[in-house]
């Protein structure tokens, strides 16, 4: 099951890249905010159907859950919008590097302190090596 989760996360990253490349084209025709809206709106319809047939959880938990756990959608929009705004100023390359560094450092801090309900997992040598290797890879790609 652990291996499967790593494979799913790899596929998720692949999907994000393909999505970015395709939406870049769509954004030229209909506008960037409109592209994000299309993604979230059509996405709601697709996942709504999937949920009707395959959902086994409890959607009604939404009303009882602590309010901060409902912020996922808004955070996603902030991410997309910040990228859309900065690409014309600094280019795709630097934008992606900045996003990834923010993502890496923040996920380490979140997990180190067990924030936002995540399982607490301390920073260790291996994790720091992993981040250093990622930064080297980022420099080489650009």
């Amino acid at each position: 099951m652990r291996y499967l989760s790593y494979i799913l996360a790899l596929l998720a990253g692949a999907a994000l890249s393909l999505e970015g490349a395709i939406y870049g084209e769509l954004g030229k025709t209909i506008g960037q905010l409109e592209t994000s809206f299309y993604n979230f709106f059509m996405g709601s319809i697709i996942i709504g159907l999937l949920w009707l047939f395959f959902g086994k959880g409890e959607l009604s938990y939404t009303v009882e859950a602590p309010k901060w756990t409902l912020l996922g959608g808004v955070l996603g929009v902030l991410y997309l919008t910040s990228i859309v705004i900065s690409v014309p100023f600094v280019g795709v390359g630097i934008t992606m590097v900045a996003v990834i560094i923010g993502q890496l450092v923040m996920s380490m801090i979140i997990e180190h302190y067990g924030w936002l309900g995540s399982k607490r997992s301390r920073i260790n040598k291996e994790k720091i090596f992993a981040v250093i290797s990622m930064i080297i890879a980022l420099i080489l790609v650009n």
């Binding site: 910040s82 560094i101 923010g102 993502q103 923040m106």
Partner: peptide
């Protein structure tokens, strides 16, 4: 943009927590 990356990892943590119950 750094802030954009921060929101993305915060989103994965928040959603992970919510999904355990929902």
């Amino acid at each position: 943009t750094l802030f954009g990356g921060i929101t993305l990892s915060a989103q994965s943590a928040v959603n992970g927590t919510f999904s355990r119950k929902a």
